[in-house]
Amino acid sequence: MARLGAAVTVVTTGSLAQPVGFTASAVCSVTDDPPTVLVCLKRSSRVRPSFVEGAAMCVNVLAANQEELSNRFAGPLSAVERFAAGHWETLMTGAPVLNEAVVSLDCRISRLVEEGTHTVMFGRVQALRLGATAHGLVYFNRSYHRLPYVEAFDGVTDN
């Protein structure tokens, strides 16, 4: 699976007063109607009890310069230490939203599925916020890679 590159995210729940979060690269779009994403979380994770059906969840996609933040949320630090980095606020659900994220998907957990060593969490997007930067961070072959900004194709060509 190390050869399956993926965006690097920090997934949060709780509130600004009692935030919980972890780094995830096992995140993907499920459907656009209703807008739904899935996130995989290891069953043995100490943050897992905070992510329950119906809970708020925010998927914060990290920018190219946020490798240190990814490591902070993947390591043994406490919630206070993890959330000391970055600037946090909330959108619709109350889950912590990273102001510096490429995009933040503010979700409500609609379903949990246990599969092997992980819990698959389905989140219905309630709100989203695009960040100021679109320089992405991906994890591939056990290391970080920075993606340059590429102007989105708008479907119009000059012929």
Rank of each mutant, 00 (worst) to 15 (best):
residue 66 Q to I: 11
residue 7 A to G: 15
residue 117 T to G: 13
residue 46 R to F: 11
residue 34 P to H: 04
residue 114 E to G: 12
residue 63 A to G: 11
residue 36 T to W: 08
residue 95 A to C: 00
residue 68 E to C: 02
residue 144 Y to Q: 08
residue 132 A to M: 13
residue 41 L to D: 12
residue 48 R to Q: 15
residue 60 N to D: 01
residue 106 D to K: 00
residue 34 P to K: 06
residue 96 P to W: 08
residue 42 K to I: 12
residue 36 T to G: 10
residue 58 C to Q: 05
residue 159 N to S: 11
residue 27 V to D: 05
residue 83 F to E: 03
residue 31 T to V: 08
residue 40 C to H: 12
residue 98 L to Y: 05
residue 27 V to K: 00
residue 39 V to D: 07
residue 26 A to T: 15
residue 79 A to Y: 08
residue 84 A to C: 09
residue 91 L to E: 11
residue 10 V to T: 08
residue 90 T to C: 03
residue 124 R to C: 11
residue 100 E to I: 01
residue 133 T to A: 09
residue 56 A to Y: 03
residue 24 A to R: 03
residue 50 S to L: 01
residue 50 S to I: 03
residue 14 G to R: 04
residue 147 L to V: 14
residue 79 A to S: 15
residue 9 T to Y: 02
residue 27 V to S: 07
residue 99 N to C: 11
residue 6 A to S: 15
residue 89 E to Y: 10
residue 141 N to G: 01
residue 102 V to A: 13
residue 43 R to G: 05
residue 112 L to S: 14
residue 126 Q to K: 10
residue 18 Q to T: 15
residue 106 D to S: 05
residue 109 I to F: 03
residue 158 D to I: 11
residue 93 T to R: 09
residue 99 N to A: 15
residue 92 M to Q: 15
residue 90 T to L: 02
residue 153 F to S: 06
residue 51 F to Q: 05
residue 137 L to A: 04
residue 10 V to S: 02
residue 16 L to G: 06
residue 66 Q to F: 06
residue 85 A to D: 12
residue 55 A to S: 15
residue 158 D to F: 09
residue 143 S to P: 02
residue 38 L to N: 14
residue 96 P to G: 03
residue 19 P to W: 10
residue 118 H to R: 08
residue 144 Y to C: 09
residue 145 H to A: 12
residue 86 G to V: 10
residue 121 M to T: 02
residue 153 F to T: 03
residue 58 C to N: 09
residue 155 G to S: 01
residue 129 R to F: 08
residue 148 P to Y: 02
residue 57 M to S: 06
residue 119 T to H: 10
residue 35 P to Q: 04
residue 147 L to E: 04
residue 151 E to C: 06
residue 115 E to M: 15
residue 16 L to T: 12
residue 13 T to N: 01
residue 10 V to E: 04
residue 139 Y to P: 07
residue 152 A to L: 14
residue 131 G to T: 04
residue 123 G to A: 04
residue 57 M to I: 06
residue 79 A to D: 15
residue 159 N to L: 12
residue 60 N to G: 03
residue 156 V to H: 13
residue 137 L to V: 13
residue 115 E to D: 14
residue 118 H to M: 11
residue 112 L to W: 03
residue 1 M to W: 09
residue 78 S to P: 04
residue 40 C to N: 09
residue 26 A to F: 11
residue 30 V to P: 05
residue 141 N to Q: 14
residue 58 C to L: 12
residue 104 S to Q: 09
residue 101 A to R: 00
residue 83 F to R: 02
residue 121 M to R: 01
residue 126 Q to H: 05
residue 145 H to F: 08
residue 133 T to V: 13
residue 135 H to M: 09
residue 109 I to Y: 04
residue 8 V to D: 10
residue 50 S to Y: 12
residue 100 E to T: 03
residue 100 E to R: 00
residue 31 T to L: 06
residue 113 V to G: 08
residue 92 M to F: 06
residue 157 T to E: 08
residue 20 V to C: 09
residue 8 V to P: 12
residue 98 L to P: 03
residue 155 G to V: 05
residue 108 R to K: 14
residue 23 T to P: 09
residue 80 V to I: 13
residue 60 N to M: 08
residue 54 G to Y: 03
residue 138 V to H: 04
residue 61 V to P: 05
residue 129 R to K: 13
residue 146 R to Y: 07
residue 24 A to G: 05
residue 79 A to H: 15
residue 89 E to K: 01
residue 41 L to W: 06
residue 1 M to G: 15
residue 73 F to D: 01
residue 91 L to Q: 08
residue 43 R to F: 01
residue 40 C to E: 08
residue 33 D to K: 12
